[in-house]
Every structure is written in C-alpha cells, then in structure tokens.
Write a protein that binds this DNA or RNA. Structure first.
Length: 582
RNA sequence: CGGGGCGUAGCGCAGCCUGGUAGCGCACUCGGUUCGGGACCGAGGAGUCGGAGGUUCAAAUCCUCUCGCCCCGACCA
C-alpha cells in the first residue's frame, strides 16, 4: 500500500463539486450520483471528464486488473488510439463496421479511425513479431480509451462513446492451449470482480458478431441492468437470455383425435385475440413467423405463449442474420393478410419448429386465409417441419437444461466483462501464422477478453447505493475514510482530527479531512453522498469523554471509540478486505 | 436511423398559448446572527433566452431553417 501525500487530503483543497440537485438528463442512479458527488462532468454526448475522485477509483480498478492479469501471465502494452485505415481494410471491417467507427483524415488526406477495439492492431503486431511456437502462448493486454460512435450514448458512464477499457488478446499454438488461456482469463476475471467487491455472475453468452464458439459475460447484478440473465436455482448454470438453452422435452405423442377444421376468426390477429375469441389457452395455439435470411424465407413455428430467440435462430441458420419479413412478403407467401399465417400447406419455403411443438396435436394455427384459423392441427400429420430446434426465449420457471431438479430464475445484469474464445477467425483473415514444432505454418489460436473499466465503476454504484448516496466497496473506494471535525474553531477538535488522519496514513489508509468551515449537516450529507466506507466524526461532545464516532457507510450503527481504536478498527476492516486477494 | 420531448444564469425551473421592463429556488460573493443531519437576515455578482434568417414600431414569445441534448427501439465493455 502506498502512502503518498495524495492519500491524505484536505477537503478544501480537493475539487469535489457536489450538487444538491440532479441534472435532468441523468436517469440512472450511477449517473446521478457520479454527477452529484462531483466524480464526472459531461463534455459532449457520451464523453466525460473524470474528476479527481473518479480517477482514484479508476486507478484502483486498474490496479486490481493489472495484479490479476499479471498473476495470470499476461503482459501489458499500449496500442495507439488512432489507427490507419489500411489495417481495417485488411480485416474487411473498414467497410463492415459502419458509422460506429469514427473516421477522419490527416493533413495528407490519409484515412484513420479512432480505435473502437484493437484486434487489427494486435494481430498485425503479433504476426510481424512472432514466428515460432516457442514464443507461445502469449497474452497481451492494454488499458486504454476506446471510442465508439454509439448510435445512442446513454446512462452516463454506463454507455459512453469514449470509455476506458481493458482489452486482452491471447495467442496459442493449439486449440487446447487456447482453451487453457481462456480458462485462466476466466478465473482472473472472477478474482478481479470479487476484489472490486461486486456481486456478479459469470454467464454463458452469445458470441454475437465477434464470432467464436465459447464465451462468458461477467454481469454485475443490479436492478437497472440492461441485460436479462437466467440462472438455475439448483446448479451453477447461468446464461444471458439470448443464450439460455432449453431442454428438449420427451414428448408423449398422443394420437390426433380430430380432423383439421376451419374456423372463422374475423378480425382476430394476435395470439391473445385468437385465444380469447376461441376460448383457448395461448399455449394451445401455434404462432407462425416469417423471416428473411439473406434471400431465403424461413418460417418459424412456436407455441403461442412462447417468444422466438433471434440469436438461436441465427445460429440455426449458420450465422445469417434473420430479419422479420415485411407484411408484403408475408401476404405474398401465405396468400393472406398478416395475422393469419400458418404452417399448413405452405409450399416452397423452409419450415422450422421449436422443440416444444414436437408431437403436438390439437393446435390452433393460422389458415393462410383472411379471417380464418385451423384447429385440431397435428404436427407430423398436417405439417412437417424440416427441423425441430431450440428456438424460443427461455423464461423464469423453465426447466434447467443442465440438471434434473433446477428451474430458471431471472436477474438483471450489467455487462462489465466479456471473454471470447476466437479460434483462428482473425488470424486466418489477417494471415497471421507461426511455425509449429513440425515446421508447419499454422494460424494462431486466439482469444479476446474485455473489461469496461469506467463501466465497472458505474456498475459498482448501481449495485451499492442508497437514498443518501454512494456506498463504495472498500476495494475501489476513492478513499477509505472521511475524517470529519465538527468544530473547526475548536483547536482540540482540529488537532485530534489531524492526529487521526496522520495515524490513518501511517497505517496505510487513505483519507480526506473535511476541514471546511461548514455546518455539521452539510459535512454529513456530503460524506454520505461521496460514500467512503468509513466516517470518523470528531466533536466537542464526544471528545469530552475521550471518544470519536466511527460509522460504516450504509450502517446505522455508530461506535464511540478512542481515536486509536477507531483507526485500528478501520485498519482491520480494510486488511480483511485485502485478504480476499491474497 | 425511426418515434417522442427539451434548449431561458453553474444546476433545477417559470415566463411563450394572448409579442412590449427577463424572473424564482439552489449554488456563488460580502456583512451579520447561527452551529451535531443540506440554517436565517440583509446586500450583491452572474443570462448572446442554443444559432441564423424572417414577420413586426417592437420577438424569449409568432414563422422558416439549423445545431445541440434527452427519452423509447436494432449494437456493445
């Protein structure tokens, strides 16, 4: 623990512009509190100044990252924020990346971009400098500003355009080696977020556009999270809803008992309308959705009460992005207005069905005819999908796919980290090869690993706050303690406060002494708002009895202790926290 | 990009409909009284009313264009 003078400051000298009122634009608590507590100020949409307190927290998160990645064998380097277009043309992403890539020209007219990520640069570097399997494995990372010209920056630091990110890239000679690197990083990530004091889940994730076959997201649990995650209440399986698998149930295929029958359903288009009109449960209906995938039309049939999961469908289609077909296309294919599509009698298009429909009988489906549905439809008799697959969105209460007893429960999460096993996708595309032990040229096996540093700070607040302000976890608090002398005109009070701060510093603890000539109420309010883990109040009353007050932020309990005991108490608590990383 | 909303003092807002002196609260400065959970009294400083053009004797207010910001949808750390 360093004990530079910066770790013992006087409030009056620090730039901590706290605010009583919240700017209208701040919607989420982390944004509101970072703003009110004087941690950040906006410069432009999605672009923020990090004030001194915020930077201290950022430094603490960075330090934890550096220690844990170092322990995992990764090396830090620093790549440029400005990248030449040539590299992006080589990977094909100069065209593909879209408007999120901020491009500009230098004085000679050459094109550059502000790096939103660094796969190109790192792959280029490694392909030039690494030629032999003897130099592998290699894991390189940096902590650096990224710029993504987001369509819609929002929520302060949660989704900015410029943000601090730790990005790491692993290079291995074999797939097994790459999996080992992946798991090392996975474990390092667990330790990092534990040391940050966050309640998080590592969940299986969709690999999205980055590609690859293995991926986990690290999600900080918080009500305001943008992601929904499902976890088993019995075993350890957890996944982003986009990814959450479902067990294919064995079906006891009952024999169809009725012949298909047409029913008139004038004006009844939605599942809810048809179900109500025919006095049937939504689960007795099947919904038929038409998607365009490239130039092909794919028909997806699901149980009426289920929702389609697009990433699952995309995976089934071999990575082609499915887009819901337009009303015109639906009418053309089904011969009926939208709302009456059904799988029976559809010709010339591929029909896929969700596992839940395997062996289903007595379904109500659209008749491909205006104002008409069919009932008593049996899968296999009246229509036969080319495939059954897991295509629906999992819900809380659904059976866990990994164990017998468990059910899904739902949480909201903020994605603060993501690890990907990439395989050879980028190395093949960018022709990055090495010589293996048989003298054969092979593409690198790669992985990439990100942590949103500034987002982690915001997520910590989303998870740790109350009506009064922030409640920093000890590991990433800007300072450990606020020392609050109540009567600045009382020499004994001030002396005691100064002595306490000196003792804190000597004990390796970081503190701010609130030396402002303010009324106690203001000092208390600001201390709560800033959210340092401990507050020591020195007042005339307590001092008469030789005690000061120690309060843990967020706890109602106030301990009356001697100054020495108060310092010792904090030292013990902080040491216990640090123990977690040992 | 589609849909909705907002730009008036550092922050939160009123004024706009019905054109005519730019206002309130917080914050800030000075003086005084207060002093253990965002005190009170008095006196001050601070605003191109987002920008440009137009209508008018006169525009924060009406019209046109433009820029910026925020919220809801498809991306991502």
């Amino acid at each position: 623990m360093t004990t530079s003078s910066k770790d013992a400051m006087r409030y009056s000298q620090l730039l901590i512009p706290t605010l009583k009122e919240v700017p209208a634009e701040a919607i989420v608590v982390s944004h509101q509190l970072l703003f009110r507590a004087g941690f950040i100020r906006k410069l432009a949409a999605g672009i923020y100044n990090l004030l001194p307190l915020a930077l201290r927290t950022v430094h603490k998160i960075e330090r934890i990252i550096r220690e844990e990645l170092g322990r995992a064998g990764a090396q830090e380097l620093l790549m440029p924020a400005v990248q030449p277009s040539e590299l992006w043309e080589e990977s094909g992403r100069w065209q593909k990346y879209g408007a999120e890539l901020l491009r500009f020209q230098d004085r000679k007219g050459a094109w550059f971009c502000l790096g939103p990520t660094h796969e190109e640069v790192i792959t280029d570097l490694v392909k030039r400098e690494v030629r032999s399997y003897r130099q592998l494995p290699l894991n390189l990372y940096q902590i650096q500003s990224k710029f993504r010209d987001e369509i819609r920056p929002r929520f302060g630091l949660m989704r900015g355009r410029e943000f601090l990110m730790k990005d790491a890239y692993s290079f291995d000679a074999t797939a097994e080696g790459a999996h080992k690197s992946y798991h090392q990083m996975y474990n390092a990530y667990r330790r990092i977020f534990e040391r940050c004091g966050l309640d998080f889940r590592a969940v299986e994730a969709d690999t999205g556009n980055i590609g690859g076959s293995l991926s986990h997201e690290f999600q900080v649990l918080a009500e305001s999270g943008e992601d929904e995650i499902l976890s088993c209440d019995h075993c350890t399986y957890a996944a982003n809803v986009e990814k959450a698998e479902l067990k294919a149930r064995e079906v006891t295929a009952g024999e169809p008992t009725h012949a298909v029958e047409k029913v008139s359903t004038p004006g009844q288009k939605t599942i809810a309308e048809v179900a109500a009109f025919l006095k049937a449960a939504p689960s007795a209906l099947a919904k038929t959705l038409l998607f365009k995938a490239d130039d092909k039309i794919v028909v997806v049939v699901l149980r009426g009460d289920h929702e389609v999961n697009l990433p699952k469908l995309k995976a089934l289609l071999g990575g082609v992005e499915p887009v819901l077909a337009s009303d015109e296309v639906v009418s053309k294919i089904t011969g009926a207005p939208p709302g009456y599509a059904g799988p029976v009698g559809l010709a010339g298009v591929e029909v896929v069905a969700d596992n839940a429909l395997a062996g289903a009988t007595d379904l109500i489906v659209g008749a491909n005819e205006a104002d008409t549905h069919l009932r008593h439809v049996a899968v296999g008799r009246d229509f036969t999908p080319s495939k059954f697959a897991d295509l629906r969105l999992a819900r809380p209460g659904d059976r866990c796919p990994r164990c017998e007893e468990g059910k899904y429960v739902t949480h909201r999460g903020i994605e603060v980290g993501h690890v990907f096993y990439l395989g050879t996708k980028y190395s093949v595309a960018m022709n990055a090869r090495f010589l293996d032990d048989k003298g054969e040229e092979k593409p690198f096996e790669m992985g990439c690993y990100g942590i949103g540093v500034t987002r982690t700070m915001a997520a910590a607040i989303e998870q740790n706050h109350d009506a009064d302000g922030i409640k920093w976890p000890i590991g990433i608090a800007p300072y450990h303690a606020m020392v609050v002398p109540l009567q600045m005109k009382d020499a004994k009070v001030v002396e005691t406060a100064e002595k306490i701060q000196a003792d804190l510093t000597a004990a390796g603890l970081e503190s701010v002494l609130d030396d402002r000539e303010e009324r106690p109420g203001i000092k208390f309010k600001d201390a709560d708002l800033l959210g340092f883990p401990f507050r020591i109040v020195i007042g005339q009353k307590g001092l008469a009895g030789g005690t000061v007050e120690l309060k843990r932020r967020g706890s109602a309990e106030v301990l009356n202790l001697s100054p020495q005991d108060a310092v010792a108490h904090i030292q013990k608590a902080v040491a216990a926290e640090l123990q977690k990383s040992a």
